[in-house]
Each structure stands twice: as C-alpha cells, then as structure tokens.
Design a protein around this nucleic acid. Structure first.
Lengths: 129, 129
DNA sequence: ATAAATTCTGTAGTCACTACAGGATCAAGC
DNA sequence: GCTTGATCCTGTAGTGACTACAGAATTTAT
C-alpha cells in the first residue's frame, strides 16, 4: 500500500487529479491509514494508469470511465469498446480536417503580411463583410 | 440602432454570448434605450462579427481581443498581427500532428477488435503496463 | 529539535460559453 | 382594452477536466 504521492508517480496522474477523480466517482475511494492518509493498492494504480492512457488517447473522462468499467467486467465486451473507439476516431478525423482547413485559411490570411505594410491585409479581411 | 436579438442575427454571435462578451469587457457596453434594453450600432455589430471570425479561426478570446484592439487602432500593426497568427498557426499544426498520431494509435488499438473475440485486445493493451 | 516534504480538506479559478429562474416589457391580433 | 407570444432584463449556476491555492496536520530527514 502506497501513499498518494507514490501512486501519482507510478501512474503519471497528478495528485490533485487523483483526488479529483475520487471526488467525481471515477475511481473508488481508497483505503485510509490511521492518520487519514489515502492508501493505494496495485489495482488502484492500475486503474489510474488505465485512465491516464485513455486521456492521452483523447477520450473524454466519461468515455474513459465506460472503458474502465468494461475492463473491470470480466467479459471484455469488444463490441462496445470498438463502438466507442470508432466514434472517437471519427471525432478525431473531423477535428483534423477542421484544423487543416483552419491552417489553410490562416496561411492565406497572413500570406501578404509584410513588415512594410501600411494596412494589414489580415485585419482588413477580418473586418470586411 | 438595433436590439440584441437583431445584433445576434446580423453578427452570428448568440445573445447570451454577446452579453457574456460585454460582461468580461471584450466589447464596450452598448447604449441603452429608455426601457433599459441594449441598443447596438453598426460598429458594434462589426466588432461582434470580427470576434466571431476570430473564434471561427480558433483564436482564443484573449487573442481575438488583441486583434480587435489592433484593428481599432488606425495604424494596422501588421507585425503584431502576423506574430500572433504565426504562433496560432504553429499551435494548429502541433494539434494536427498530435491528432494524427492519436488516430494511428486508435486504429492500431482497434485493428483486432472483432465481434467474436473473447477478450478485447484494446482493453488488454490499455490495461497492460 | 528543527526544517522540509507530504498530506489533508475545502474552496475558487480557468475557458468560453450555456442554461436557467423569475421578472419586465413589447408587438400583434381580436 | 386584453391576451398571447416574443423578446428582453439581471443574476446565478452548470459544463469539462482539471489546477491552484489557503491553512492545518503530520511525517521524514538532518
């Protein structure tokens, strides 16, 4: 059994974030030592690491929770997992294409920005109808 | 002079959002009619439209405010604008590459997810060290 | 014995809105 | 004049996913 600082180090999840996850019911309340400090088991750290990976993959906390719950049920429900992941992949693709368009628009807007300009063409474009 | 609903329609910025922008000092407090209702001028609507475009381009509100201020100063400061935009473009590029990596990782994780599986390989990977 | 590190609770701040609640006023039709 | 519905007002609280304190208690290291 380890303290919260060590659990944070082992899982890569910040101390405040661990307490936040506990507060919102994402992870079960851990045991407490006689001095009221939280005590974490290997399973607890595993859960935190799992959540960390989900977050790194861009899953929302609610989805991460769903995946964690699926993972705790012994029968790995592959279909549910893939459904969730596919929605998320589609989401990521959409974001990529939006950002790509954005980049093009920004490049176009700044293309004629040069230090000698009297009037900034980008501001002009942003101002115009 | 038009009411807030019409200003919202003309600018594409929601009514609540307009009031929010006013509250946080992003746009000047508009005139008020005798009945205390807000009255917007063409210039006010122009400002809202400008902010809308900045937000659509993904600029943070603080940056949008800076651009708006630059735009209101008569001398269009092209250098400051381009600096801000370039930082933002770099930001967008970074996000795109992060998301692209993410998409690859997600595809890899779900590649072997099939409905007949007993154990989900994605969950397995998320659980493992 | 003292200093530094860690932990605790609880609250508030972040960003950019969004969603009410509860009331006032306005415009249009009868 | 009256009713109905649309619009507007203020103020507060919620969202997501943390992050940053304040102020206290305790533990660990020197």
């Amino acid at each position: 059994m380890i303290a919260i600082g060590e659990a944070s180090r082992q899982s890569g999840v910040g101390i405040e974030t661990i307490r936040y996850y506990e507060r919102v019911g994402l992870v079960p309340r851990p045991e407490r030592a006689a001095n009221n400090r939280r005590l974490y088991s290997a399973a607890d750290v595993g859960r935190l690491r799992f959540l960390k990976k989900c977050r790194d993959l861009g899953f929302a906390l609610a989805d991460a929770k769903t995946l964690l719950d699926l993972s705790e049920q012994c029968s790995d429900d592959c279909r549910s997992v893939k459904e969730l992941a596919d929605i998320h992949i589609a989401d990521v693709r959409r974001k990529i294409s939006e950002l790509t368009e954005l980049e093009a628009a920004l490049n176009e807007l700044t293309a004629n920005c040069a230090s000698g300009n009297v009037a900034c063409p980008m501001l002009g474009r942003l101002r115009s109808k």
